[in-house]
Design a binder for these strands. Structure first.
Length: 589
RNA sequence: GGACUCAUAGCAUAACUGGAUAGUGCACUUGACUACGGAUCAGGAGGUUGGGGGUUCGAAUCCCUCUGAGUUCACCA
């Protein structure tokens, strides 16, 4: 049991014996003591005043006395207003340090039985990945790693959007203007090549619109009647009719794109247990429409279109199937939800999609709930904010995007330049150096993205490169390599629990003891950002200790042994935390 | 128009979900290199938490209201 849980119990017992009141554990709030005050943990006593019938100060003092009676490891207490600050003995902390189990720290005491599926990435095959996708991928991957670390059995899946009118646009533009260019002949990645033709389509399409407008058509009519868009629509129909030539072109171009995506995924360090393709799932869900109709949950309009009334949930009416019987976005998402459950049987299903689709997922989850799906309660939309550029929102058609491959290459180049300036890579092979530049560059990028609360939109200025100093990934890596350097020169020895702790040691051990709580909270909130901010704090706390007390140079053997134990544990927690974020922890840098 | 987000120092962000004097980094500034690894550490300056009201012992956090930004709303997924 961790310290807080222990304290909580004690507080409960103490309140019972002092005031003869059985208190709801939720009323007991225990926090780390604000560093400006004396103490390790703080109990908020305001909620107890109601039945203690005493002032907050008196109540706190009585509680403090009582707690110390039953817990000798609480060696001191002080009261400021309604805050009861408790100081734990140094030997308590050293004992904790001595007995901590590296193989279980941070993980659930009882491994959760539930299985979790995380769907993320969901790229379109008509354009390369950009900064927005990077946020999606990093979030999806690290949430999955976080849950896995905590103890859940997790699966990662990717639903690729490989069909539809937008894909046909690229296909058509390639057919028209491509001259049988290939990724090899053009010397670019397949996804970039196809992305180029998506932009070409847009340019040509706009030209056509303009000439139609000049010929006297309204803008709306021009958009609908431009030959290119009509041809793209025709191509989509051919594709749906499974026409040989169209399907062959579609397959060829998609293969190129997948090869490109795989490269990007590898560099990003993300992976998937299974790929779903919309070309295979887009017809799903029609039987669910029937099911809903027969259950009386859905209704038909005169034109035969199918709807659901969600006015009670303030979600309005929503179209589920067109009058001609073809499916819409919602139709296939209902189908894929069932499919994923059939394939993996997960109790929790997390889907990582931008917050522009908040409404869509509210509706989807509400429908699956009404249909009585067993997994409905475990559905969660991990909604994240858009990544804005100083110039506004990224738009791939207009070319105002930060390309994922370019950005990663730039980060790695920055890391290389910085590392070479510092000149600490003597004796490393070229391969080791390149791995290091990659580790550092990606750490900077990943930490930069993941430290921000997922739900918030974030601003990224491509002109200002991501820092390598301060509150950054490389800072944490650097702290780690420093500890590793020390540990390489140290010998193993036991913790001596009879020693006094320096302030910086006590601060560090307090933070270390919080790792489990942070992971738990991150799991509850699906937020890797909490882990990111925590390991930064931890690295900072260690660096302070490093600057203030001797470690290897400590003459007192007992103290030195304890400090080595601090080093070992800190290194372990830092590495675990970085791992959750998908960041490598190099031995040297 | 309806629904949903968001607003914290020049910039980027945190605040244990209602707790103490709102933390941190970048940039600016002062100091610590005969270093257990300076991608570090210590200090300074920078805030009416968009404005106004309310609830509370206590509000960046909850409620109301303005202002501003964004997303979404029936056939692109």
């Amino acid at each position: 049991m961790n310290t807080e849980a222990h304290l909580e119990n004690s507080v409960k017992e103490a309140l019972k014996s002092l005031f003869e009141t059985e208190i709801d554990p939720k009323q007991i709030k225990i926090e780390l003591t604000n560093p400006d005050f004396e103490g390790d943990f703080t109990v908020l006593v305001f909620p107890f005043v109601r039945f203690s019938k005493k002032s907050p100060e008196e109540t706190a003092d009585m509680l403090g006395q009582e707690l110390r009676k039953s817990n000798p490891w609480i060696i001191n207490h002080n009261v400021i207003k309604g805050f009861l600050n408790l100081s734990l003995s140094h030997s308590y902390w050293l004992d904790w340090l001595k007995n901590v189990d590296l193989s279980t720290i941070g993980k659930a005491e009882n491994k959760p039985a539930e299985k979790v599926i995380v769907e993320y990435s969901s790229p379109n095959t008509n354009k390369p990945l950009h900064l927005g996708h990077i946020r999606n991928n990093l979030l999806g991957y690290s949430v999955s790693e976080l849950l896995q670390f905590y103890g859940y059995d997790t699966k990662k899946v990717n639903l690729v959007n490989d069909r539809g009118i937008h894909i046909c646009k690229s296909m058509l533009a390639y057919q028209r203007f491509g001259n049988d260019e290939t990724p090899e002949s053009a010397g670019v990645k397949g996804d970039h090549l196809i992305g180029k033709y998506y932009v070409v389509f847009d340019l040509e399409y706009k030209k056509e619109i303009q000439s139609l407008i000049d010929a006297g058509l309204s803008e709306d009519d021009a958009k609908k009647q431009a030959p290119l868009i009509l041809e793209a629509q025709a191509m989509l129909q051919k594709w749906e009719a499974n026409e040989t030539e169209t399907v062959a072109l579609w397959k060829k171009l998609n293969e190129w794109v997948y090869a490109g995506f795989n490269e990007t995924y590898t560099t990003l360090g993300v992976s998937f247990d299974k790929f779903y393709y919309e070309s295979e799932t887009y017809l799903l869900g029609k039987d669910i429409v029937q099911e809903g109709l027969s259950k009386g949950l859905f209704y038909k309009k005169e034109d035969d279109s199918v709807w659901i009334d969600l006015e009670k949930e303030k979600l309005d009416h929503k179209l589920l199937q067109r009058g001609d019987g073809t499916s819409v976005y919602m139709t296939q998402d209902m189908g894929t939800a069932d499919l994923k459950y059939k394939d993996f049987g997960c109790d929790k299903s997390i889907i990582v999609v931008g917050n522009e689709q908040d409404y869509h997922f509210k509706v989807l989850f509400s429908i699956m709930d009404k249909l009585g799906r067993p997994y409905a309660k475990g559905n969660y939309h991990l909604s994240y904010g858009m990544v804005d550029l100083p110039s506004g929102k990224m738009k791939s058609r207009e070319g105002t995007v930060v390309d994922a491959d370019d950005l990663m290459a730039e980060m790695i180049a920055d890391a290389k330049e910085k590392t070479e300036t510092l000149g600490k890579t003597d004796g490393m092979s070229e391969a080791e150096k390149n791995q290091l530049y990659y580790d550092i560059g990606m750490a900077a990028l990943k930490y930069f993205i993941l430290k921000v609360d997922p739900s918030k939109r974030m601003l990224f200025d491509p002109k200002e490169s991501i820092d390598l100093q301060g509150d950054t990934g490389p800072f944490i890596q650097y702290s780690y390599t420093r500890i590793r350097s020390i540990l390489r020169q140290a010998e193993n020895s036991e913790v001596h629990t009879d020693q006094a702790l320096e302030t910086s040691e006590r601060n560090l051990v307090l933070l270390l003891s919080q790792f489990g709580n942070v992971v738990k909270k991150g799991v509850d909130q699906y937020s890797p950002a909490l882990v990111a901010n925590y390991i930064y704090e931890l690295a900072r706390s260690f660096n302070k200790l490093y600057a203030e007390v001797p470690l290897l140079k400590e003459m007192d053997e007992a103290k030195k042994a304890n400090r080595m134990a601090f080093c070992t544990l800190t290194a372990h927690v830092l590495k675990s935390g970085l791992g959750i974020l998908g960041i490598n922890a190099p031995e040297r840098m």
